[in-house]
Simulated scan of single mutants.
Amino acid sequence: MNPIQKLRHFAFQDSSIVATPLVGSTAATAIDDSLGQREFAIKVAPKAIFRLLTYIVCTLTALSVASHVGHYVFGFELIELVILDLERNIPTSYAGLCLALCGVLLGVIALHKSSVRDRFTLAWSGLSFLFFMLALDEIVSLHERTILILRNMLNTSGVLYFAWVIPGVVFVLLFAATYFKFWRSLPSRTRNLFLFSGLIFLSGALGMEMVGGFTATSIGQLNLVYALVTTVEEFLEKMGVVFFIYALLLYIKTSMGSVKVNFLNE
């Protein structure tokens, strides 16, 4: 049996997300006659995905702010299920899934680059691994377990109250130096979107984290001001990931066109 009889065609096109039969080639018609099946395409619109994810982030942020205001201003019980800065809840699950999606998309690109022997295949693979690690960290909060250890070791306070930002800044600088040539090799639109998304993410993950450290040192953490600072931090992180997903989908669309998955007989 020809392996193409198990073919499924995943096409990245700028239209709404639908699953439609692909009819219009002799090969497709032959598959219909022999198996009673049709090739189908899942059409992914980068702009539609971007709008959807942005809507989700804004909705989660609004719910988190409303819960904080209700708690600190009106004395209602805090709804922990929707608080952006807490763990094991809806926003954390969403963030982990989006980071994992980045890992998958980067992995798809890496496989394509490997097939054409691109010199930056390893760089794409490294990015994929990094985002899977970020997804894991988001779910189990690995970096936050180092805060108290580093704070006691380095005796930090103020903007460095959350002491993990020190190795975080070092890692970002090393990463930037390592990936500079890769970044310069990207198409201008992709390059700009990568930079923009990275700056938004880091302004939250590092910038607002340091603002949060200063706020925590100055007035504590159990107040509306600190809650809003952490909400802005999480919002920026999540929007940075949204822009990065958009950049990856556009890159796949313009540089690869479509992704085919063949299911082979065993």
Score class of each variant (00 low, 15 high):
109 I>V: 10
219 I>F: 02
70 G>F: 02
193 L>C: 06
197 S>G: 11
93 S>Q: 10
25 S>D: 08
215 T>F: 01
218 S>V: 11
129 F>D: 05
77 E>N: 14
99 L>E: 13
27 A>P: 05
10 F>D: 13
194 F>V: 03
121 T>G: 13
78 L>I: 08
50 F>S: 08
9 H>Q: 11
130 L>K: 01
142 L>P: 01
205 A>F: 11
18 V>H: 13
145 R>N: 10
127 L>F: 07
41 A>W: 03
21 P>K: 12
111 L>D: 00
9 H>P: 04
261 V>L: 15
201 F>R: 06
85 D>N: 15
75 G>Y: 03
126 G>C: 01
5 Q>Y: 15
19 A>F: 12
42 I>H: 02
90 I>L: 08
198 G>W: 00
34 S>M: 15
252 I>S: 07
110 A>G: 05
106 L>K: 02
164 W>I: 06
225 V>S: 09
174 L>W: 10
124 W>A: 04
121 T>N: 04
160 L>V: 10
77 E>A: 15
146 T>I: 11
195 L>H: 04
53 L>V: 06
108 V>E: 04
53 L>M: 14
186 L>M: 12
27 A>H: 14
78 L>G: 06
82 V>R: 08
105 L>Q: 00
76 F>Y: 12
210 M>W: 04
219 I>R: 02
36 G>Y: 04
32 D>L: 14
130 L>N: 05
145 R>G: 13
32 D>H: 14
188 S>F: 09
91 P>M: 03
140 V>T: 04
71 H>F: 04
87 E>G: 01
49 I>P: 08
128 S>G: 13
200 I>W: 04
169 V>W: 09
90 I>M: 04
56 I>S: 09
127 L>V: 02
95 A>K: 06
76 F>D: 13
12 F>T: 00
28 A>N: 15
236 L>R: 03
129 F>E: 01
207 G>Y: 08
37 Q>P: 07
37 Q>A: 12
11 A>K: 13
178 T>Q: 12
178 T>R: 04
18 V>N: 11
8 R>S: 11
139 I>D: 07
163 A>Q: 06
78 L>R: 11
51 R>Y: 12
142 L>V: 14
254 T>H: 13
246 Y>M: 06
